[in-house]
Design a protein around this nucleic acid. Structure first.
Length: 902
RNA sequence: GGGCGCGUAGCUCAGCGGUAGAGCAUCGCCUUGACAUGGCGGGGGUCACAGGUUCAAUCCCUGUCGCGCCCA
């Protein structure tokens, strides 16, 4: 006997172990079945499960479990990402607590520490995914820095280099001074910051004139090599070509005309610092300006590159700037200029400042040598693949976002000045000649050939952007560069499920690399899921303290409740709001299923393998089997189209609305009055009860299978308990199929009449405040023979559910003081002599009449409209005529009913 | 500044040319032999606003306002 409540903790872990140990998650490449592949977005190896994971992983698990049940050879490829910056940062913090640093212990010892950290922390997220019920093929788990994947990284690096698509260049890059590393454009976040606009006076050489420049970053003036004005700006026309004496460095710099300068902004004149600003760099290129760097890698002032050209008016002050942090230098310089009377104006100014998204440091553009990937070349075929539909985004609107970025793609800076990651497979000879090779031995051979003798080589110190290895994930996990069986079988994958926040970081790059390396797209469909917000729609953040911990939710409500909630909430591409309240509410659905099953168990509804749904004869049986058919079709269509929230709601409605609220309630009299398999039902007919039991178990089996992808634990538990299959077998049980239902239309008409009759009576009773315990007789007048026969067939069910004491046709006068309800051609009459408030009943009927009359009038007006009748399609006109007829007939009956109590 | 998306019941959202829907919340009734994590019933919406297209607009088009996100 099932307990009264489903206790997830009692089942989930045990069940998961059963599945995993039985190999239920494993792909079976040897099977003769069409593969279905999902590549997991590898979470950070040292991370832990957050609600975003819970959402995306649940959706993937729903899809993979569905396809598994569809008989596909389902591969959900799991693994984790080494997450260069994030992981290195955590270990560095640990070292800091120990009073040391990575520089102090050295590269090798540091990497040892990271591997130790990974060994200790790396299992957390995979354990948590198990708690969630995720069913990837764990036997294939990969890590972006394991040997195979590292080999793939080296191989592709060499290939791209040899194809001229990877190159080394000195360019202005986004520099994170805190990590002391370059980062890519994507890792830069523009933030609105309240700052100042300083208006500074720069004297013009050989005159008393001066020009006022406005800047948000006075400290960079040490690297000024020009002042720019707009070519059409009348105010400065005569100054173009003159020379300025830079007030701190004393450097002679020209006033140039460039359209970059915006006459509307600031003073209309801007200082140009090519080495520390992307726009200034472009100006510098156009005017062949020098571009001295004035900051080191920690963004401290370095005077070396400007000393030669400097003639500082105040050499002591100039020298004092050496080694100052950029913000300290700013304060010093502003104060100095103010004292010298060169500070004209300080304006409050809100502007966007680039920040590193990981460290939060203000980005310092810096001229450095880095490795770049020619993303433009790789993007072309990747754009085409989405244009011609080889890759489709769901929802489609995300394709615009993809195109916009891809069509304006910038070179991808792939080198990072970190230690944790794939070290760049490039070696330098004594004269700095570069040898790119998969191994040091290969590089040595190349060097020997180049120099004519063996040479001492030094490997590049940098590592690759983490996303470089992630981009290879769809094929590197399958054994590439070896031409493995898995690679041919599982590439390309079917669907990628991920958040739109990494569409550029990851999705676009996988498509680029997939096409470059494999000659085919990595997946057919990209299902974009939204971001998870808190109940009020606010972004979750640790500082706000509104972070919802999925594991706490699982602990409190069970994994199924969480899974069901995020699936039902996941409108494609839409952000979802999640709080404990929603999960708690959805848990009641799990409980409902549990209790429905408990009722089935109590009434001996056991799966009968010999049961043939096509042979079901009772209208109620055929009605629920028909509804099940429709649900199977709708649920499958929704899943096939990746409308996962629709799938969840379709199953919910069928389970709760059709199966529990109506089918089980209507079947109750037969099931309960006839305990035991061989017994007699109310009509003395043993077959009815027997059939209903078999149908009940059959339909329960269908809904357990339909719901298994989203709520695997409770469904598997019940599946096992009821003996539908061996323990732990639901996960691999075939998806339900439609069955043949004899004369479904008739069954629908019959049961729908019963449902409407019961609902009408209940509504009248409630509105008339008839106490629930009061049983009242039901009289039916003006009913057709068919309706009367129906009413007699269902008298017990109607009596039970509408709390009716008897059911008779009424031919003569209506008893005094009765409530009435119109149902098709018939009128249901409830004699309420003592309890009825006649005025209230008149009002109730009048209200109904008013509603019907207004509807009839609306339709009539429509049908009187010549334009409508002549131009609207036939079926719409016919439908309106029918509706008008029905409304008018109902009006007549309501009038009759009203006159009876007049 | 450019682009994308969203404004539908108190809340969260579905519907996207032809009778406005669900869940939650709310109100009333009910502890009936699966379930009060329940059952039954009710109230609640000029579908942001203004034009246009159409026989017909919540739905299509244009504009306005408000909100969000992305890119510069």
């Amino acid at each position: 006997m099932l307990d009264k409540n489903f206790d997830p903790t009692a089942f989930e872990s045990r069940l998961y172990e059963t599945w995993e140990q039985a190999g239920a998650f494993a792909a079976t490449p040897t099977r003769n079945a069409r593969p279905f592949t999902i590549m997991i977005p590898p979470p950070n190896v040292t991370g832990s499960l957050h609600v975003g994971h819970a959402l995306t992983m649940t959706l993937q698990d729903v899809l993979i479990r569905y396809q598994r049940m569809q008989g596909r050879d389902a591969l959900w490829q799991p693994g984790t990402d080494h997450a260069g910056i994030a992981t290195q940062l955590m270990v560095e913090r640990e070292l800091q607590r120990e009073g040391t640093s990575r520089q102090e212990i050295g590269r090798e010892a540091f990497l040892d520490r990271v591997w130790q950290w990974k060994a200790a922390q790396g299992g957390t997220i995979t354990k948590q995914l198990r708690r969630l019920g995720a069913s990837p093929d764990w036997s294939r788990e990969r890590f972006t820095m394991d040997e195979g994947l590292s080999r793939a990284v080296r191989t592709i690096f060499v290939r791209l280099f040899n194809d001229g698509l990877i190159y080394r260049a000195k360019r202005l890059v986004n520099w994170d001074p805190e990590f002391a590393s370059a980062i890519s454009d994507l890792e830069v976040e523009m933030r609105e910051v309240k700052g100042h606009l300083w208006h500074l006076r720069y004297p013009i050489e050989g005159s008393d004139l001066s020009i006022v420049v406005a800047t948000t970053r006075p400290e960079t003036m040490l690297g000024d090599t020009a002042v720019a004005v707009h070519p059409t700006d009348e105010r400065f026309r005569d100054l173009i070509g003159k020379t300025i004496i830079q007030p701190i460095t004393g450097r002679r710099i020209p006033i140039i005309a460039d359209e970059y300068s915006d006459p509307e902004k600031g003073s209309g004149a801007v200082k140009i610092t090519p080495a520390h600003d992307f726009n200034d760099f472009a100006v510098g290129q156009r005017h062949q300006l020098a571009s001295p760097s004035i900051f080191d890698r920690a963004a401290r002032v370095v005077l070396a590159e400007i000393r030669a050209d400097a003639q500082p008016p105040d050499p002591d002050f100039f020298d004092s700037l050496e080694g100052l942090d950029r913000f300290a230098a700013r304060a010093e310089i502003v104060a100095h200029l103010e004292a010298a009377g060169a500070l004209v104006l300080v304006e409050s100014h809100t502007h966007t400042v680039p920040h590193a998204d990981r460290s939060n440091a203000v980005i310092e553009p810096l001229l450095t040598e880095q490795w770049f990937c020619n993303a433009e070349a790789l993007a072309k075929p990747a754009i085409a693949a989405v244009e011609d539909g080889r890759v489709a985004f769901v929802p489609k609107s995300w394709e615009n976002t993809y195109f916009a970025w891809m069509r304006n793609i910038e070179p991808w800076c792939i080198s990072r000045q970190l230690w944790w990651g794939h070290r760049i497979p490039a070696w330098y000879g004594p004269d700095c000649t570069i040898f790119v090779a998969e191994t040091e031995a290969d590089a040595a051979l190349q060097a020997e050939e180049h120099y004519g003798h063996p040479a001492r080589l030094r490997q590049d110190d940098d590592v690759l952007d983490t996303w470089f290895s992630s981009a290879l994930w769809p094929f590197s996990t399958l054994g590439w560069p070896d031409n493995t069986r898995d690679l041919t079988r599982y590439y390309p994958g079917d669907v990628l499920v991920t958040g739109f926040d990494i569409i550029f970081f990851w999705v676009a790059r996988m498509i680029m690399m997939g096409l470059y390396v494999m000659g085919d797209v990595p997946f057919r469909t990209v299902l974009m899921n939204g971001l998870v917000r808190d109940e009020r729609g606010q972004k979750m953040s640790k500082t706000k303290g509104n972070v919802v911990d999925p594991l706490a939710l699982i602990e409190a409500y069970g994994a199924d409740a969480l899974r069901y909630t995020v699936t039902a909430q996941s409108g494609a591409g839409r952000n979802i709001k999640l709080g404990a309240g929603l999960v708690e509410a959805n848990r009641s659905f799990i409980t409902k299923i549990w209790n429905a099953a408990r009722f089935c168990e109590m009434n001996q509804c056991r799966p009968d393998p010999a049961f043939n749904p096509a042979a079901a004869t009772l209208p109620l049986s055929r009605w629920i089997l028909d509804a099940a058919n429709r649900t199977i079709t709708e649920a499958s269509e929704a899943l096939d189209a990746y409308r996962l929230s629709d799938y969840a709601l379709i199953c919910y409605r069928f389970t709760w609305g059709d199966f529990c609220d109506w089918f089980l309630e209507l079947a109750k009299p037969s099931l309960i009055s006839a305990p035991g398999l061989v017994s007699v039902d109310r009509a003395g007919n043993t077959d009815d009860a027997r059939e209903l039991r078999a149908v009940t178990a059959h339909v329960l089996g269908i809904l357990l299978r339909l719901l298994h992808p989203v709520i695997p634990f409770v469904t598997e538990t019940l599946w096992d308990e009821f003996g539908y299959g061996a323990a732990g077998s639901l996960i691999r049980t075939p998806w339900p199929e439609r069955s043949i239902v004899t004369d479904a239309d008739a069954a629908r008409a019959e049961v729908s009449w019963v449902i409407r009759a019961i609902s009408e009576i209940r509504a009248v009773r409630n509105e008339m405040n008839v106490p629930a315990a009061t049983r009242i007789p039901l009289l039916i007048r003006d009913a057709s023979a068919e309706t009367l026969a129906r009413a007699q067939r269902w008298r017990e069910e109607v009596a039970r559910l509408a709390r009716v004491s008897s059911l008779e046709p009424l031919h003569g006068e209506m008893p005094h003081g009765a409530a009435q309800a119109i149902l098709d051609e018939a009128t249901l009459i409830l004699p309420l002599a003592d309890i009825i408030d006649l005025a209230a009943e008149r009002q109730r009927l009048a209200n109904t009449r008013a509603k019907t009359a207004s509807e009839a009038e609306k339709i009539a007006r429509k049908l009187e409209n010549q334009d409508f009748v002549s131009r609207a399609p036939e079926d719409i006109i016919a439908e309106n005529r029918d509706r008008l007829d029905a409304a008018q007939a109902e009006l007549a009956r309501l009038d009759a009913a009203l006159s009876r109590i007049a």
